[in-house]
């Protein structure tokens, strides 16, 4: 019997069940990717830095999947999850992470600059708030080409205190650009705590300064993020302009490899680990502990194969070192 003939169950009325299971798998895969990344770094198999999003997978699972393939993504430096959710191929992603020619950016970008322009994935970002002004241009381009695309611009709480944040939100709001500003508030800009860096209670309050809609959602709740991004996209496609969404979440690991985490307590981290977005989403899908173990096993196997692929891929040829600078 064709599946279309029976109505698929919707998780909390918005995410089709089969899609939800796929998202859960990708959340687990993201975590497995990052745990493996950390391990490889420890073994000296990777030489660059990386930014782990462990504990924040709920935002990525709810954001990209709420949009269409034709939409645009401007990612952050902590964007492995978003990259996978946008449809990134694990092998090519792993190859990029390991600096190989088969990687998305031929090993030139690494984790911090991974992009796939072909799928409208306009890249991860090494400069805090660096992607915010760019989203103005993408929005203008969409408006000029008269398509119904939107651009999802991701950034952290730290970026909301950069001047570029103001310039970007103001321009997008005065021109009604189809931009979804999604702030992943993971409580720390490196070591600077949210409470120390903001006078406002919520970053989304700043939306009122631009006359646009702002809302704060639980970033560890996939469905809440999915709903907020879907609604923002619908508004943007209608020409109603940008939305500022703040997703509250927490970074379990340090900022990067140099972080000794002197700015927070173990108790605080533990408290947030109890709000694990993966476990919470699994519960919504009635996936029990044993079921989750099965999924993890599958993800780890896929990671193992990707590492194998990346390790057997050739290094970039030094004779090509100057390629790709100019068109």
């Amino acid at each position: 019997m064709p599946t279309s003939s029976k109505k698929e169950k919707m998780i909390e009325g918005v995410i089709p069940e089969s899609k939800a299971h796929e998202l859960l798998y990708k959340m687990v895969l993201t975590r497995a990717f990052e745990e493996n990344a950390e391990e490889m770094y420890g073994l000296g198999k990777v030489h660059g830095t990386m930014h782990l999003s462990i504990g924040e997978e709920g935002v990525a699972a709810g954001a990209g999947p709420a949009l269409r393939k034709s939409d645009y993504l401007l990612n952050t430096h902590r964007g492995h999850g978003h990259f996978l959710m946008w449809g990134g191929d694990l092998n090519r992603m792993m190859a990029e992470f390991m600096g190989k020619e088969a990687g998305y950016c031929r090993g030139r970008g690494g984790s911090m600059h991974i992009a796939d322009v072909e799928s409208n994935n306009l890249g991860a970002q090494g400069i805090v708030a660096g992607n915010l002004p760019i989203s103005v241009g993408v929005g203008l381009s969409i408006q000029m080409r008269k398509t119904d695309q939107v651009v999802l611009t991701l950034f952290g709480d730290g970026a909301a205190n950069e001047g570029a944040f103001h310039e970007s939100l103001n321009m997008a709001s005065i021109w009604n650009l189809p931009v979804i500003y999604l702030c992943e508030n993971n409580q720390y800009a490196m070591s600077m705590a949210f409470e120390r860096a903001f006078r406002v209670e919520q970053i989304s309050e700043r939306a009122s300064a631009y006359g646009i809609k702002g809302l704060t959602v639980d970033g560890n709740d996939v469905v809440a993020v999915y709903k907020a991004v879907s609604e923002a996209a619908e508004q943007a496609r209608k020409g109603a302009g940008p939305t500022l969404i703040e997703a509250i979440t927490y970074r379990w690991k340090g900022h990067s490899k140099s972080d000794r985490q002197l700015y927070r307590t173990r108790e605080e981290v533990k408290k947030w680990m109890e709000k694990d977005p993966i476990k919470r989403f699994a519960a919504k899908l009635d996936v029990d502990e044993a079921g989750l173990k099965e999924i993890e096993k599958k993800a780890k196997e896929e990671i193992r194969k990707a590492v194998e692929f990346a390790e057997s891929s050739p290094e970039p040829d030094v004779n090509t070192i100057l390629e790709g600078i100019y068109a």
Partner: peptide, 28 residues
């Protein structure tokens, strides 16, 4: 005004607008 675009005093915004539009197919 859709092709001769006045901006607020936002130089980073102007540069970002050019970059974002350029990478998505325009020639600003």
């Amino acid at each position: 005004p859709k092709r001769i675009i006045d901006t607020p005093i936002s130089e980073a915004g102007i540069a970002g607008a050019c970059i974002g539009a350029a990478v998505t197919g325009m020639r600003p």
